[in-house]
Amino acid sequence: MAPEFVLGLALLIIGTVASAFPGRRDYLTRLIHLEIPAWGLLLVMLSYDEALALFTFGGVSALSTFIYVRVMQKREAA
């Protein structure tokens, strides 16, 4: 088994548990913890050699962070 695959799965599990049960129940903490499984998924995709998937995922993960931040600011203001 490729080391990228094992490390990616480890990151996915750590990040998912951390963003489901954060220390401070705060949307900012959850948002930062959500970055960890994103990188884990990138490593898992890397172990399957999918270049187009890597590109798309890199773009979408930054875009989704931006959308989450905007949505939460709107909800805080309302």
């Binding site: 890397l46 050699d49 270049a51 890597l54 890199g58 930054a62 962070t65 931006f66 931040v69 600011q73």
Partner: peptide, 26 residues
Amino acid sequence: DRGYLDVLAATALIAPLSTIFILMAM
């Protein structure tokens, strides 16, 4: 190591963007 230098350059420029978005919220 896998040879995806183009993906590396793109990812390395996108990663600070998502950090900056989180900093905007902070």
